[in-house]
Simulated assay, not measured.
Amino acid sequence: MACKYVYWISTALLSALYLMSATFYLTQSDTVRQLLGQLGYPGYLVPLLITVKLLGVAAILSRISVGLSDLAYSGMFFHLLLALSAHLNASDYAGSVPAFLGLGVLVMSFTTQNAARAKPSPYAASRQAGT
């Protein structure tokens, strides 16, 4: 039962992080382009990042397909890992905090998903291990 709470709380926090980020990218696109430029990335990534962030959250929450949901987790994992790396490389330690926290809640969400969802993921911990 506790694993279900951990899953839904961590998934809600992960979704909130990505939805707030996409909203910031939408409303402050010039600022985001400037910040991405400081990290060494081109500004044309902003619309792509908005799209994949929203689609990733939709894939995980709706779980239309377990494979698609796992792919979204994978994409978020690599995105957060690369964001953490970029901020640390640019000595922007304050900017690395959301990526670090995001990695933590992503791992919690992914590893507890089989305890809370009807369709199990073959890559996450089994239900028997979580009960």
Rank of each mutant, 00 (worst) to 15 (best):
K119E: 11
V57Q: 09
F100S: 14
S96G: 09
L19R: 03
K119Y: 03
L48Q: 08
P42W: 15
Y44E: 14
Y123C: 11
L49G: 09
Y93N: 07
K53G: 07
L88C: 07
G104L: 11
G43F: 06
L81K: 04
L45M: 08
W8M: 04
A125R: 14
L35H: 11
C3D: 11
V6F: 01
T131P: 05
S10G: 05
A12H: 10
S109C: 07
V105Q: 03
I9K: 00
L13T: 03
P47C: 03
Q113D: 02
Y44W: 13
I50T: 04
R33K: 14
L71F: 15
Y7E: 01
P122F: 14
V46R: 04
S10C: 10
Y123L: 15
S85L: 12
P47W: 01
S15L: 02
I50Y: 13
L82E: 11
T23G: 10
V52G: 04
D30P: 02
Y123V: 06
G104V: 10
N114F: 02
M76S: 13
G130W: 12
I60Q: 03
N89H: 14
A22H: 10
H87L: 10
L19P: 02
W8S: 10
L35T: 09
S96Q: 05
Y73M: 05
Y93C: 09
A115N: 01
V97F: 11
A72P: 06
L61H: 10
S74I: 09
V57T: 09
Y18N: 13
L19S: 05
Y7Q: 05
L80F: 05
L36A: 12
L55D: 06
L106S: 00
V32N: 04
G67R: 05
R127G: 02
T51A: 15
V52S: 12
A59Q: 08
L106M: 03
L103W: 06
A16F: 12
F77H: 08
A16E: 06
V32D: 04
Q38H: 15
A94Q: 08
P98V: 14
A125N: 08
M1W: 01
S10K: 04
M1F: 08
V66A: 15
P122I: 14
V66F: 07
L19M: 12
L19E: 13
C3E: 14
T112W: 00
T131S: 12
K53Y: 10
W8D: 03
Q28K: 12
R127W: 01
Y7R: 02
S85H: 11
R33P: 00
Y123R: 08
A16D: 07
A2Y: 09
I60G: 08
L81D: 07
G130C: 14
S15C: 10
S126G: 14
S62Q: 12
S85A: 15
G40P: 04
S109R: 03
N114K: 02
K53S: 11
T31W: 11
N114G: 06
V52F: 15
S29L: 08
T23C: 04
L13E: 04
